[in-house]
Amino acid sequence: MLDNLKENFSHIFEDALIDEIGQVGVLKEVKEGEKVIEIGDYVRSMPLLLKGAIKILREDDDGDELLLYFLERGDTCAMTLTCCLGQTKSEIRAIAELDTTLIMIPIQKMEEWTGKYKSWRNFVFQSYHARLTEMLETIDSIAFYNMDERLVKYLQNKKKITNDSLINSTHQEIAYELHTSRVVVSRLLKKLESMGKIELNRNSIKIIAL
């Protein structure tokens, strides 16, 4: 675990902090599609991503989901930080997009390190800023983009996160995450295919030129 920590965070944290994380952190393996955090959970620890990716979702009163942003290697979740420090219930759902390895940091250490290590304090503030920026981009896409533009951005993000041109998602799964209907997603995907930008397969989409 210590080697993984150094590989992912040595450019951010000083050696003393990495050693402390190695001592108190709990290694957690999460399979693709498995929930990491559920809406309504009390969050007692903060995740640091060593490998993989996690998608963060919100849910409306009807139970429909909206994708807020992705977390990648070297990231943490600002929403988790807020829940931990405020000791409030989670308002987001976190699901592994890929097989993911995390280190879970106890809430007590989060507060202690904020005063003890400048690098930790900067990391927390930068994480808040990055996640806020991503949520603002999501809001902008809903408010100002057409659904076809949102779909293209979604597929581009999926390709970037998975580092793979083959997107293993059904039309219904994409519709859930974009908060729209399967019919709309299917129509727009067929349009992209007719333009030569993607290739549609059963339960998957191959990106050709997006």
Rank of each mutant, 00 (worst) to 15 (best):
residue 4 N to H: 06
residue 4 N to I: 00
residue 5 L to R: 09
residue 6 K to L: 12
residue 8 N to D: 06
residue 11 H to M: 08
residue 13 F to E: 05
residue 14 E to N: 05
residue 14 E to R: 03
residue 14 E to I: 04
residue 15 D to N: 12
residue 18 I to P: 02
residue 21 I to V: 15
residue 23 Q to W: 10
residue 27 L to Q: 06
residue 27 L to W: 01
residue 29 E to K: 13
residue 30 V to L: 09
residue 31 K to I: 08
residue 34 E to M: 13
residue 36 V to L: 15
residue 41 D to N: 11
residue 41 D to R: 06
residue 43 V to E: 05
residue 44 R to P: 02
residue 45 S to E: 10
residue 47 P to S: 02
residue 47 P to N: 01
residue 50 L to W: 15
residue 50 L to S: 14
residue 52 G to Y: 00
residue 53 A to P: 14
residue 53 A to R: 11
residue 55 K to D: 11
residue 57 L to Y: 03
residue 60 D to T: 05
residue 61 D to K: 05
residue 61 D to F: 03
residue 62 D to K: 07
residue 63 G to C: 12
residue 67 L to W: 15
residue 72 E to C: 08
residue 77 C to M: 09
residue 77 C to F: 14
residue 80 T to E: 09
residue 85 L to A: 03
residue 85 L to G: 00
residue 86 G to N: 10
residue 87 Q to Y: 04
residue 88 T to D: 07
residue 89 K to G: 13
residue 90 S to P: 02
residue 94 A to E: 13
residue 97 E to H: 08
residue 101 T to A: 12
residue 102 L to K: 06
residue 102 L to C: 10
residue 103 I to Y: 02
residue 110 M to T: 05
residue 115 G to L: 09
residue 116 K to N: 04
residue 118 K to G: 00
residue 118 K to S: 01
residue 118 K to Y: 08
residue 121 R to L: 03
residue 121 R to N: 04
residue 124 V to P: 02
residue 125 F to R: 07
residue 126 Q to N: 15
residue 127 S to T: 11
residue 131 R to H: 14
residue 131 R to P: 01
residue 131 R to E: 10
residue 131 R to Q: 13
residue 132 L to N: 02
residue 133 T to M: 11
residue 134 E to M: 14
residue 134 E to P: 06
residue 135 M to W: 00
residue 139 I to E: 11
residue 140 D to M: 10
residue 140 D to P: 03
residue 141 S to N: 11
residue 142 I to V: 12
residue 142 I to D: 00
residue 144 F to R: 04
residue 147 M to D: 08
residue 149 E to P: 01
residue 149 E to S: 06
residue 157 N to M: 14
residue 157 N to Q: 15
residue 158 K to N: 14
residue 161 I to G: 02
residue 164 D to Y: 02
residue 167 I to Q: 07
residue 167 I to L: 08
residue 168 N to V: 13
residue 168 N to Y: 15
residue 174 I to A: 10
residue 185 V to R: 14
residue 186 S to D: 09
residue 188 L to E: 08
residue 191 K to W: 12
residue 192 L to T: 01
residue 193 E to N: 03
residue 193 E to R: 09
residue 197 K to I: 00
residue 198 I to S: 00
residue 198 I to N: 01
residue 199 E to A: 05
residue 201 N to H: 04
residue 202 R to D: 01
residue 206 K to L: 15
residue 209 A to K: 02
residue 210 L to N: 05
